[in-house]
Design a binder for these strands. Structure first.
Lengths: 100, 100
DNA sequence: CTACTTAATCGTTGATCGACGATAGGCGAT
DNA sequence: ATCGCCTATCGTCGATCAACGATTAAGTAG
């Protein structure tokens, strides 16, 4: 419910798009969707990037609202905010007039 | 028709998102959608940016495949590639599983 | 041909990004 | 309390971005 279905403001739209504007972050997002939820270290294993770099990318995605991270002891478990992602898709589609 | 409905590759998706990852370019895109087609100078009038800056933004959008520009005498007329924009929205939506 | 309009390109500057290694902090286990 | 693991943050460096003014290129009108 809530504002799940209202389009994003330009600023927020831009921020989310910017967050997706890097191949590594798209891959990270896809992995997160595949595994449903997973730990930073797991992504580091899979991507050819340093831990600090992956952590940065995750922070960016989190700041944009596309993923959420919850601390579980010494680890941090990330998962995609599907609602936001859906809202992003919706917003882009709603830009086009006459879209059935 | 053709590949209108197949999702974008990660690289292309990232490039398009990057192109939309700036408020000015979102505004430009929206204006282009509103006016259907318009000239660079028209956008310069409306945006608080220098002509060279607007031209740069348009080039970025064009390189990403989101807008098309055709030369009309001394002017260049831009319009949104709605098919691509739709495909972008579709691609983002298709990321999410169980999306009705 | 000249003068004007329009847009793209060049060159510059400061800011931000993307990547890394190194460091620091939090938590669990020993 | 200490050790080890996991992650976030810091500092750095080169590359790219965003913005501008100035210049160039291409057409049109006179």
């Amino acid at each position: 419910m809530s504002d799940k279905n209202i389009p994003l403001e330009d600023e927020q739209l831009a921020e989310m798009c910017k967050a997706l504007g890097h191949p590594a972050r798209i891959q990270i997002l896809k992995h997160l969707l595949d595994e449903d939820r997973c730990i930073c270290g797991r992504i580091v294993e899979i991507m050819p990037l340093a831990q600090s770099t992956v952590s940065q990318h995750l922070k960016l995605l989190k700041d944009a609202g596309l993923v959420q991270g919850e601390v579980e002891g010494p680890k941090t478990c990330y998962c995609v905010n599907r609602e936001m992602l859906a809202r992003l898709g919706l917003t882009i589609n709603s830009l086009i007039p006459h879209t059935p």
